[in-house]
Design a protein around this nucleic acid. Structure first.
Length: 525
RNA sequence: GGCCCCGUCGUCUAGCGGUCUAGGACACCGCCCUUUCACGGCGGGAACACGGGUUCGAGUCCCGUCGGGGUCACCA
């Protein structure tokens, strides 16, 4: 039988990085076996606007290349894939549970249940429902209803023995049935709850492997109980460790961003991303824009392959040295057997290092189209991009080299796309390299004259010209290079100076030097 | 608190009884390259939670302790 895996997000509006990792493992397993990967929407409870909350999740998966064979927008033989649309199916199965004696109608009010719970807690005992308002016959039910009570349906869990099952990651696992509660499977309003829905859907969709985060491990006995009561075959289980907070073993949650900010690496990553997001006019809040969410990476310009590669290594490894996997290699090599048991904490720096590697290998031709939307969003180049401008972008990308780690980093080189007269200067750099540098003004002025005659105006000739200039002036290259960079770009750091000159071209270079000199004169040190 | 899971460098991990004075990667530190930044090259520090067993031999098996985490809803 072919492998069928699923990932079942709730439409919360956000795609969590830990969720992606879980989905990725499922996807890998399905692809490897030539099976199917199914996306099911667990929306049994939420009344929220579903489409709006779901779209970012679907977009995120698409962006990462984690495609689904059945699910929202693609349909499939078992449609619908939304739990909210499958209620009658669940209700039908609840009836079967009732008939089989595996569940009962319970007429306790929430207050009464809470009271029993509190009592048990006060006595420091495990809560075991007394089943005082349990109705197993219609007569009992009518009696309770005569009192004006409403019922939920609870599982009638075994009160002795053990539930044992095999888990691909954990091995043989067992729980005492007696510790299990009589979980509610159907609410008083007739809607059904997650555990029931999940089991029914897994059966209906013919899911063979349930690969999910470890927090579901303790849910498994009740799901097994439901499945067995309904006569379903059991899927295979694999409970993978969750993704933990940076530098910790606590489950990562999007609600604790403020706390993660204490982690310097995390903060650095967020600050870098925020700077880019602001430049491209994306409205950001910590809730919707941070490194826990996939949208962050998409917005800032990370490469999906880099993210997938990082994520696959979070809790899985092939051997003692292989770190890089193409998509195909991942599919081929992945195995549940080699999934690690302990939780893995999210390390922004390592993710960044994968990004840097993948980016540096990308040919300029492929980087350019990645980068252009950022320049356009920041209002630096027109849309559509003029042909000539495309060449400039390519030249900047080439010169930037490895300095371009994420696509949004192109904005660090915005100076090439700014009009000469609008060039802002980094005050500190200007002060240090031109303002109070004694010979800077003189040297800039002299070198300007040299520039007028450089032919052709390319990096190699410019380099020769500058070295010649240094000899005649009896100075070191460092004496002029820094001042020149600030004059040309407004910044103290940047890529090669000769590339900078060549890309700007003679006219703009001369104009910018002139402007810097003027500025120096108008605001003397 | 009950139950369950986990425990090798700061982080991700290799290790499935001897080849481990514990290997790789990221990060960190130093040096080199260099017009800044980045890249790159070379080198360095850095871990088997603890205590008992079992065994000729334990990071590897067993037990306990400690530590961390998850879960205990008419949430998913």
């Amino acid at each position: 039988m072919s492998i069928r895996c699923r990932f079942a997000p709730s439409p919360t509006g956000y795609l969590h990085i830990g969720g992606v990792r879980t989905a990725l493992f499922n996807w890998l397993l399905a692809r490897q076996a030539g099976g199917q990967f199914i996306l099911r929407i667990d929306d049994t409870d939420l009344q929220r606007n579903q489409d709006e909350a779901l779209q970012p999740i679907l977009d995120g998966f698409r962006w990462l290349g984690i495609n689904w064979d059945e699910g929202p927008e693609v349909g499939g033989p078992h449609a619908p894939y939304y739990q909210s649309q499958r209620l009658s199916r669940y209700q039908n199965e609840v009836r079967r549970l009732l008939h089989a004696g595996a569940a009962y109608r319970d007429y306790a009010t929430p207050e009464e249940t809470a009271a029993e719970r509190a009592e048990a807690e006060a006595a420091k005992q495990d809560f075991v429902y007394s089943r005082r308002w349990m109705a197993e016959t219609d007569e009992q039910a009518q009696a309770f209803e005569a009192e004006g009570r409403k019922c939920v349906v609870r599982l009638k869990m075994p009160r002795e023995g053990q539930c044992s099952f095999y888990d691909h990651i954990r091995g043989e696992v067992s729980f005492d049935w007696a510790r299990e509660q009589d979980h509610v499977v159907q609410r008083a309003d007739g809607t059904c709850l997650y555990h029931l829905a999940s089991v029914v859907d897994d059966f209906d969709f013919q899911i063979t492997h349930v690969v999910r985060a470890i927090e579901h491990l303790s849910n498994t006995p009740r799901q097994i109980f439901i499945a067995q009561a309904l006569g379903y075959p059991l899927p295979e289980y694999a409970h993978i460790p969750f993704v933990a907070e940076p530098g910790s073993k606590t489950k990562m949650s999007k609600r604790k961003i403020a706390q993660y900010l204490k982690n310097p690496d995390f903060k650095k990553m967020l600050d870098h991303g925020m700077a880019i997001a602001q430049r491209i006019g994306k409205s950001i809040t910590p809730e919707s824009f941070n490194p826990v969410l996939v949208d962050f990476y998409k917005t800032v310009g990370y490469l999906p392959d880099a993210i997938n590669n990082y994520l696959v290594l979070l809790g899985w490894s092939l051997d003692d040295r292989t770190e890089e996997f193409t998509r195909e290699e991942m599919i081929q090599q992945f195995s549940l057997q080699r999934v690690v048991k302990s939780e893995a904490s999210f390390d922004p720096q390592k993710l960044l290092s994968f990004q840097a590697r993948y980016m540096s290998r990308l040919p300029v031709k492929q980087k350019v189209p990645l980068v252009i939307p950022y320049l356009q969003a920041a209002g630096l180049v027109a849309e559509p991009i003029p042909c000539e401008m495309g060449e400039t972008v390519a030249a900047v990308v080439t010169a930037a080299g490895d300095r371009l780690v994420v696509a949004g980093d192109i904005l660090q080189f915005d100076d090439f796309f700014l009009p000469d007269e609008a060039l802002p200067y980094d005050p500190k750099a200007f002060e240090k390299r031109i303002g109070k540098a004694e010979k800077a003004e003189f040297l800039l002025n002299e070198f300007r004259k040299v520039l007028v005659g450089v032919e052709p105006f390319d990096a190699a000739s410019l380099e020769r010209a500058l070295h010649g200039f240094c000899e005649t002036q009896q100075i070191q290259p460092g004496d002029i290079v820094h001042a020149l960079r600030v004059a040309l770009t407004g910044k103290g750091v940047g890529f090669g100076l000769f590339d900078t000159l060549a890309i700007l071209g003679r006219d703009r270079s001369l104009r910018r030097i002139q402007a810097a000199l003027l500025r120096k004169q108008s605001a003397p040190a």
